[in-house]
Design a protein around this nucleic acid. Structure first.
Length: 483
RNA sequence: GGCGCUAUGGUCAAGCGGCUAAGACGUCGCCCUCUCAAGGCGAAAUCAGGGGUUCGAUUCCCCUUAGCGCUACCA
């Protein structure tokens, strides 16, 4: 085909890595891998106040954890670096001088207060608050005066009047903007650091990015960037603005909606495969009816022309369903490793277990294997194996112990229990024996034992629970009921 | 306020002028079963409203409404 597709993921390291960012990264990654193109990771750290190295490390770790790698960028390097914007200041400076010299940009000496006052005045008059071009054409005298006052200027881009700006967008088609709706915007802050709308253009051009896939919140900024592309004589890339992820109440995902960062999901015990699979289906649909996709399958099936335009609501139930699928694919060893942090957190393990205890724990943990959607659910599912005191959890459970046949069932159960080796098959046979000896069946024999042992009407199969409890525990608990 | 994007069940969504409007999650029912879950089977549930265009609109156009985004010396 034509030229190699080069995409980038360009996060700002200003906080926890948002799940929406992960989706943007994923779409870029899939497009690159699908087409045999290149994925570039660039760090947009021009917000000196909020950016941190810690956050950058967090993002990179999360990307790796999700199974995404990059061909060029921070850490891995490449021919178009550096890949951190604060390390590219000299590059931007060169272009700024060019724009200034050509009159396409100018110094603005307005202070924050003056700008704020202007905005206030405009909105008080019911007009749109925007920069009115105060410094558009300053005389040399005015400039000298401002300089004498010690003012540090910003650089503003001179937005041409009466221009139609057409953004060609892969997912939305052509989107038209009027340049008259855009005020002269700042491209270099008074501290000499470029703004997002400016740096992004220079970087994408120099890094030979030809497909800019990013979240829809950037669509309205794209005409500004197009203006900069034109002013600098750069060829524009193909844009693709993917819709936002919304919370349950259809507002932007925020802490109110529960976990929002990749790290939180990792800590809750969601698997990379589950998250990727879920995220891919949010805003993209395959040709087939397939719902479960490994990363390899996603790469194969992915295509930008099946990307949806409408915003998607984050549905935790569906994530749980998909994640459970992957949890169930874990084998005994992997599942135990998966469960460990949650068992530790719950205090059911302390890391100093003997091999025997570990073997028992593994069996205990495994009982939850088919039943949990994510790791943090495991302790709750197995807690009955760790509590010493058992009591019926509610009146209904207590009532189940009041039946007149209950003492007979429990006594018979204990007697027969003593005669066998504890394993699943024998316990099954044990219940058969108890049924025969008592002349009762089904519920009448299982439920009293279940409630006596666990205090609960629901739970795993008795054949699973009893061997893990051991004879002593079973006998002790039943003794408490029948005295 | 201005500009922009979006609009199929509760949610993700297929559809790209003619269909009984897919599928999945969730919900409900039945089966299985000591219980819960899983699994199997089945059900309810959608084209935001109004105008056009057309022989025919979920599909194309316009308006309204609603949601979201941008309108920063944040990205």
């Amino acid at each position: 085909m034509s030229e190699e597709i080069r995409v980038r993921f360009a996060p700002s390291p200003t906080g926890p890595f948002h799940i929406g960012g992960a989706r943007s990264a994923l779409f870029n990654y899939l497009l690159a891998r699908k087409t045999g193109g290149k994925m570039i990771l660039r760090i947009e750290d021009t917000d000196l106040e909020r950016s941190s190295r810690e956050s950058e490390e967090n993002i990179k770790a999360a990307l790796k954890w999700l199974g995404m790698d990059w061909d060029e960028g921070v850490d891995v390097g490449g021919p178009n670096g550096p890949y951190r914007q604060t390390e590219r200041l000299d590059i931007y400076r060169k272009y700024t001088e060019q724009l200034l010299a050509e009159g396409k940009a100018y110094y603005c000496y307005c202070t924050d207060e003056e700008l704020e006052a202007e905005r206030q005045a405009l909105s008080a008059k019911g007009q749109m608050p925007r920069y009115m071009g105060h410094c558009h054409n300053l005389t040399p005298e005015q400039v000298a005066e401002y300089k004498a006052q010690g003012r540090k200027p910003t650089v503003r881009f001179r937005v041409p009047a009466d221009q139609q700006i057409v953004v060609h967008d892969l997912v939305r088609g052509d989107v038209v903007f009027d340049s008259n709706g855009i005020g002269d915007f700042v491209i270099v802050k008074s501290d000499g650091i470029p703004t997002y709308n400016y740096a992004v253009v220079i970087d994408d051009h120099l890094m030979k990015i030809n497909h800019v896939i990013r979240a829809e919140e950037h669509l309205s900024n794209t005409p500004r960037q197009c203006l900069v592309y034109d002013a600098l004589g750069f060829e524009k890339p193909t844009f693709g603005h993917i819709s936002l992820i919304l919370g349950k109440d259809h507002t932007k995902m925020s802490k109110r909606h529960g976990a929002t960062s990749v790290d939180q999901y990792r800590q809750l015990g969601y698997l990379p495969a589950g998250i990727n699979n879920f995220l891919a289906l949010l805003g993209w649909a395959p040709n087939s009816e397939q719902e479960i996709f490994s990363m390899e399958e996603l790469v194969k099936a992915f295509s930008m022309d099946h990307v949806a335009k409408n915003p998607a609501v984050f549905d935790i139930d569906k994530l749980n369903f998909i994640n459970q699928h992957y949890v169930r694919q874990l084998d005994g060893e992997a599942f135990f490793e998966f469960a460990k942090p949650h068992m530790l957190a719950a205090g059911f393990m302390d890391g100093s277990e003997t091999p025997e205890k570990l073997a028992w724990l593994k069996r205990v943990v495994w009982t939850s294997h088919e039943h949990v959607c994510y790791g943090a659910q495991i302790p709750d599912y197995v807690k009955m194996y760790f509590t010493e005191e058992v009591a019926p959890e509610d009146a209904e459970a207590a009532a189940l112990l009041q039946g007149e046949t209950v003492p007979k069932v429990l006594r018979t159960f204990v007697e027969e229990l003593d005669k066998i080796e504890l394993d699943g098959a024998n316990v099954k046979a044990l219940f058969k024996t108890v049924q025969k000896l008592t002349g009762l069946k089904g519920k009448d024999v299982f439920m009293p034992v279940r409630v006596a042992l666990t205090g609960n009407q629901h739970g795993p199969e008795m054949t699973e629970i009893i061997p893990l409890f051991g004879k002593e525990k079973c006998k002790a608990r039943i003794a408490k009921i029948i005295g």
